[in-house]
Amino acid sequence: MPDRALEDRELWRQALEPTAACPVPEELVRVSREVPHDSAATRAHVEGCVQCQTELALVKEFQSATTDPGEAAAVSWITAELERRFERILTASSAAPVAVLHKPVPWYRRFDRGRFRVAALTAAGLLILLGVGLNLRGVQEPELNSKSAGGAVVLRSEELIALAPIGNLKQPPAELRWQAAPGAAHYLVKVMEVDRTELWKSESTETSISLPAAIRKAIVPGKTLLWQVTAMSADRRTLGSSKTLSFRLPVRSDSSKD
């Protein structure tokens, strides 16, 4: 009886697992919203495929679901945990398996067996000796040299961040935007061709600047443009420049989005 039940289950597993014709969720959503000629076959497949319909229902649930009162406290706790673990998320090493539904084993318990115990104790002893040795040498902490001799602020590479436009756009941008940089009195911006030929440059004391009509006309579908912003001090010294961003209007055939 259990064997039969398992075989029964195997039939349904085979019937319900995704086939080569099943599109990935991104395409599934696009096809469900549009009727382009090139996706007619995919659309026909989706309409007759239980697995694709389920996938689509799940995507919609994922994107639009609201939190029920019964789960609000848990969702709020998990959200707070994620905010607390943000640094850990960024520094997580590659593809560690997820221990779902199991309490995680504390790291120190992994050394609590067999040869690991010996190795761990030896390593701990060596670390203590090394630590004591370094402390006895009396090495002084080097002074931080955060500012230049003249006292002028120098921005680190991530302190001036150009925000928008960037990437594929739906319509020509009306303005350029960036984040305020410490110590900046005004900003120089320039828009360039992809070979860095300068098309336009201007200055602003704000963190945005409108693009003139002449430049907006130069933003045509399929053409990539670059732009960069440089922060200047009140005495017109360069404090730092943003990374160069690129943007473009997609040509009609690649402009569809879900």
Partner: peptide, 16 residues
């Protein structure tokens, strides 16, 4: 949370 049914496992899964 809906997948795992408990908040600790859900937080671990969400982190991953």
């Amino acid at each position: 949370f809906r997948f795992t049914g408990d908040r600790e496992s859900a937080a671990d899964l969400a982190q991953e």
